[in-house]
Design a binder for these strands. Sequence first.
DNA 1: TTTCTTTTACCTGTTTTCAGGTAAAAAAGC
DNA 2: GCTTTTTTACCTGAAAACAGGTAAAAGAAA
Lengths: 209, 209
Amino acid sequence: MRYKTVIVDDHPIVISGIAGLLSDLDNIEIVEKFESGVALLDYIEEHTVDLILMDIFLPVINGVDLCKTIKQKYPKLIIIGMSSQSERSLVMQFIQNGGNGYVLKNASFGEFKECINRAIAGEIVFSEEVKMIISQPLSEDLERIPSLSRRERDIALLLSQGKSTQEIADDLFLSFLTVQTHRRNILQKYKMKNVAELIAFLLKNNLLN
Amino acid sequence: MRYKTVIVDDHPIVISGIAGLLSDLDNIEIVEKFESGVALLDYIEEHTVDLILMDIFLPVINGVDLCKTIKQKYPKLIIIGMSSQSERSLVMQFIQNGGNGYVLKNASFGEFKECINRAIAGEIVFSEEVKMIISQPLSEDLERIPSLSRRERDIALLLSQGKSTQEIADDLFLSFLTVQTHRRNILQKYKMKNVAELIAFLLKNNLLN
DNA sequence: TTTCTTTTACCTGTTTTCAGGTAAAAAAGC
DNA sequence: GCTTTTTTACCTGAAAACAGGTAAAAGAAA
């Protein structure tokens, strides 16, 4: 059997690279290539797909959410995530959403191919560097990342722009004390010591904007 | 004449993609591929190279500094920068360091090829999205981004981990006052209001780690 | 309707940051 | 050797963040 495979990446160059790599594997048949998740969602509604290789950082819908959406409808579809650099929490979330594997783009060709073959065989696969990342379990990472509420995100965004509590209160027409409460709640939610650590965390986990 | 071309990117997949793309161009001859800048520096010492396509976010030396180093020794060498996403300031700095063009990896194949051909012809080239980015001149971006010194980077990194001035002083065996001075210097260097804004700026511009 | 989450707001006190100085030894660059 | 940058260090006072509470109104979800 040949696995009908789709590649999703917003970089044509990367698509071409993967396609070239996969041409060696005779159990893989590349049926389509997309630069965004929405195009993919439309496609799988009307076509049979067995395997998806997707970038995690995509324009409109990110890969983690995209994976969840697809897996809810097509649980048997095999999805492998890819990214340039990654955080433990991101990989875990992807797997939690049903992903069958995660490969860093700096993986060697050999690693890539092996991961794909083993994923097809039913395993959950990771490239070497991803294994390194996930083998250092930090207790905080084990918990699912809660999301920011709308107001919290507004405030976090202004904090990342260097605004003080008072300035944010003025910008959003809120009481100084309200903003103070929100800020503290955000810090507590992610167990962060201060705003600097928070901003670093939010940016690395793409929770901002 | 065939241009002896080198590709530098830490993602094998991307190298493969570009190589495939360039195989269409018969005035380009790919002589070598590297995953890091240091390997490239060694190579060009002993071989003739006419054109370099380099990723900006590279492990040890970043592409902007790498470009500067190479151009100082080999001003005629044509260097085209590439990255996945980019900031105006980063592109400007690359060009200021002698880069002959800048292309986003989400550029179409046609754009890629055209950029390369025009760069060879002596032009400074940008892919469409890069043109968009640089055509919105923000005054702050017009100034060159200074880089962090080693000590400053150490301290900025610890700041991004939520450490306080005292904790950093303890970690690095420095006086509290010394760390305070460094932190202030960093803030002044980038004209940032506070550490939160600083961390956001550093992460977005990949000046950290 | 009841429950949970979100958004709003207040009070107090301690710790830390931020902004303004200055300056000398060490290292790096030319 | 000379110059510039980096690293080290100190002083002070105002501003802001942080940590600990509490709590009510509004909105969403069950």
